[in-house]
Amino acid sequence: DDTVEIKPKASEYMACPEDDEFTKQYEQMLSEDREQRKTDTAPRPLMNMSIPMNLIRQTKAPSSTSPPPPPQEGNEEVAFKVLLKAKGKQKAIDLPIPQDSKLASQHLKIKSKQAQYQE
């Protein structure tokens, strides 16, 4: 009974010159940095970009038998793994990504198409 209704207020956007200045700087930074990378940075040789299936499967096996995590507030999550290099060593860490995120929804769409192909 401690929970209470609160009228939203904190996240209401308030326009002001300081914020306009920020958005301008942001756009500028984004485009400058990306342009600079395109022109200044020579393509690098790809270093071991293959998916380490051993790492993926290793940790994936148990999760396929266990039930998926319960849906959260109507938005189910997809069990992803993030591939990282920690101190030069490859690691795959579990990270649930909401189904309605751009990344997860696109990925699911493609996977279901692939599944149709295979059938």
């Binding site: 990306r34 990378r37 690098r44 993030v82």
Partner: peptide
């Protein structure tokens, strides 16, 4: 493409 794996890459050049 097939696995539910993501990786962080810079857009250019990688």
């Amino acid at each position: 493409k097939t696995e539910s794996v993501v990786v962080l890459l810079c857009r250019d050049p990688c």
